[in-house]
Design a protein around this nucleic acid. Sequence first.
RNA 1: CGGAGCUUAGUUCAGUUGGCUAGAAUGCGCGCUUUGGGAGCGCGAGGUCGCCAGUUCGAGUCUGGCAGCUCCGACCA
Length: 570
Amino acid sequence: MKYSQLFGKPKKDAKAYDTKNATYLIKGGFVDQTMSGVYKYLPLGLKVLNKIEQIVRQEMDKISQEMLLSALSPRELWETTNRAEIDVLFKVRGANEASRMQNDSTYILNPTHEDNITPLVQRFAKSYKEFPIALYQIQNKFRNEARAKSGVLRGREFRMKDLYSFHTNLEDLMDYYEIAKQAYVRVFERLGIGDSTVIALASGGDFTENYSHEFQTFCDAGEDTIFFDETENIWYNREVTPAKAPAYKYDTEMKPRKDVFGENIVSVEKLVEFLKIPIETTIKTLIYTSKDQIYAVAVRGDYEVDEGKLKKVTGKKDLQLADAKTIKQITGAEVGYAGILDLPESVEVICDEALSDMVNFEVGANKTNYHTVNANWGRDITKPSQFFDIKVAKDTDLNPKTGKPYQIKKAAEVGNIFPLETKFSKAFNFKYVTDNGKEEFVYMGSYGIGTTRLVGVIAEIMSDDKGLVWPKQVAPYQVHLISLGKKSEESYLKAEELYQNLKSKGIDILWDDREDASAGEKFADADLIGVPTRLVLSKKTLAEQSIELKLRTDNDSKMVKLDQILEFDF
RNA sequence: CGGAGCUUAGUUCAGUUGGCUAGAAUGCGCGCUUUGGGAGCGCGAGGUCGCCAGUUCGAGUCUGGCAGCUCCGACCA
């Protein structure tokens, strides 16, 4: 491609954003923003995206078959899985009366495709003989994100490779799950981010005891924090990190318990300011309900409840925060004054492990506008026989097994693999016939890779203060040729000849053929675009029958004889 | 959904206590000059000051509402 013909040239005066991917991808002419969280891919950006998707495709083809599902779904599919009303869904319908007279249905713009593919496979696969089945696609997804951010890292429209696998039993699913995991490792290796990408354990959701696995690439602009247990060599997503609060020096002697009046003091922040006590001596109590049990869940004031952990501890998948009415009924107080003291027998109290050593602690008095201070285990409330880890891990928390701090990293989730088991097959009543004629539910797995997010993550971690530094495998071009001088000069003519020759050898080359741009401008643009190899042809180099070659990753250039450059391994 | 900031030329931004024909840089077009780190000179085109309403003799500037964008937080099977 001749630079003079390239659509979407770099613009040096574009705004600088808070993330490198947004700044450089926009400045470099890779993407253009349509609206918050929605981007167009210009020719340069599409080349990168295509190269990424091609690598993904090659690895997925080894373990599955590619197809293309529809972007639009009927509402009913999403109603089947009880997800027609979830926040992230975009719905579409006819724009006006006339349009709706023709057809007044509301459709879903798919944010993911389990609901789309499950009934499809269900119609085709009836017998155990058909299984296992693995299908994937690469398609735009639509999610009404509450907050799109960080350039292409978190968008409302984005592209994702999604693979779904179908099995007759859990063992077969888990075998395939490992195969998929290995394929993912190869993908990130080939993309050039293998060294900075790790597999982290994450929640498997409400329906499985198994973890899901996230492929997390170390990246400061990433949204996730992952915790490394070096003795076990395991990375955890924050939501599943086993957490022990660091030791806190509590009083050694019990003080008299008393109730303190404090009108409208409902948040922990207000409370510690009002009572002038350390936050580590406060207890936050939340009331949760399941269909057959009410729980008072207590964590230290400086922690939050991790509902995933709580669901595992209680074994109740339908747990939810109680409404104001229930809270009043249980505690006798308005929301904000619940405590673990003197609750009805029927309420089960679940305490976080950080509570076990507390002395002279504050706790809601179960009386509107009152808080109890200097409460103590044994004297004021029976010390529970068991404490649990039900809190969201903080960066400073310790690994309960080793008592040592975790290594903490910011990371961006570039892929995830998820053992869905029978969640969707049950929703769709998807059964197959076994070899002895019985019907059994199908086991499923889903496996995603965000391809547009990968463009952003690679841009984020492969860049310097001058611009992007693409790895060879995904760079928009292999070679960026710069000629200095006018069309009439020898350097231009030689450059044109070299451009044609390299092109005919199958080298993907961008030739900056501009006559009116200064040398400095061409160099700056080349640095910004970030093609791995830069060639410069000028009067100076021609005097030596040579061309200057510089790798984007290097500071120094070298001279290569013109007759050797065609044989160079780009 | 809560909080903060922003919205003026293609782009990035100035624009004071309300005041004459709304500015710069860059980009764009033409001409000349120039070619090893974002060159120079000259001429030129380019604006519904986000939208709606209000205050005022007069609004880019003040007030209210709405929309959009960015960031922080909440959320993210």
